[in-house]
Simulated assay, not measured.
Amino acid sequence: MYLDERGPNDAVEVLDRISSTLPIHLVLGQVKDYIPTAVHDALTGPAPGRHLASVTLMPDVGHLIPQEKPDELAVVLFKILKQITSNLIAHAKL
């Protein structure tokens, strides 16, 4: 995908399509190292039809978040899962 000109763009288009039916929580590193800047900007910017459940930009890390900042990533994922669980519990009580 990294050497294919269309590869990264195709992924963004698929994300836009599925985000209307599945809750997508996007976690990206702010450092634009492996993902081209245009793709990074396309992922984080507004787009027609895109409905992301959340967007988290992690500072001081690039594409390899699990390898470079595993503890910080765990905290981000825990917060997302905690919010999902809280929402499920709230809806169950209705």
Results as ranks from 00 to 15, higher is better:
80 I>Q: 03
31 V>Q: 15
38 A>N: 14
81 L>F: 10
85 T>V: 04
48 P>G: 13
74 A>H: 03
51 H>T: 12
71 D>K: 07
56 T>Q: 12
71 D>C: 01
40 H>E: 03
57 L>V: 08
10 D>S: 14
92 A>V: 02
19 S>N: 08
37 T>W: 14
17 R>D: 14
41 D>Q: 14
84 I>F: 01
89 I>Q: 06
65 I>W: 01
62 G>Q: 05
45 G>S: 15
65 I>M: 09
62 G>C: 04
38 A>V: 13
91 H>Y: 05
10 D>W: 04
80 I>H: 00
79 K>C: 05
32 K>M: 15
58 M>D: 04
43 L>G: 04
87 N>L: 07
51 H>C: 13
37 T>L: 13
16 D>A: 14
93 K>Y: 07
31 V>K: 13
3 L>G: 13
78 F>C: 01
12 V>G: 06
80 I>E: 00
37 T>D: 13
51 H>F: 09
40 H>D: 07
87 N>P: 00
11 A>W: 02
45 G>H: 08
76 V>R: 00
21 T>E: 12
65 I>K: 02
69 K>M: 09
43 L>T: 02
76 V>C: 03
93 K>T: 11
14 V>A: 12
11 A>R: 10
78 F>G: 03
69 K>C: 02
32 K>G: 07
79 K>P: 00
16 D>K: 11
43 L>N: 04
65 I>C: 05
63 H>L: 10
12 V>M: 07
64 L>F: 06
64 L>M: 05
13 E>D: 15
50 R>I: 06
5 E>C: 07
2 Y>L: 12
35 I>E: 08
46 P>Q: 14
72 E>H: 02
31 V>R: 15
49 G>L: 11
85 T>I: 03
86 S>D: 10
93 K>R: 12
55 V>Y: 00
78 F>P: 00
59 P>E: 09
83 Q>K: 12
42 A>N: 09
81 L>Y: 05
9 N>V: 08
48 P>K: 08
34 Y>H: 13
39 V>D: 06
19 S>Q: 08
61 V>G: 04
35 I>A: 13
64 L>D: 05
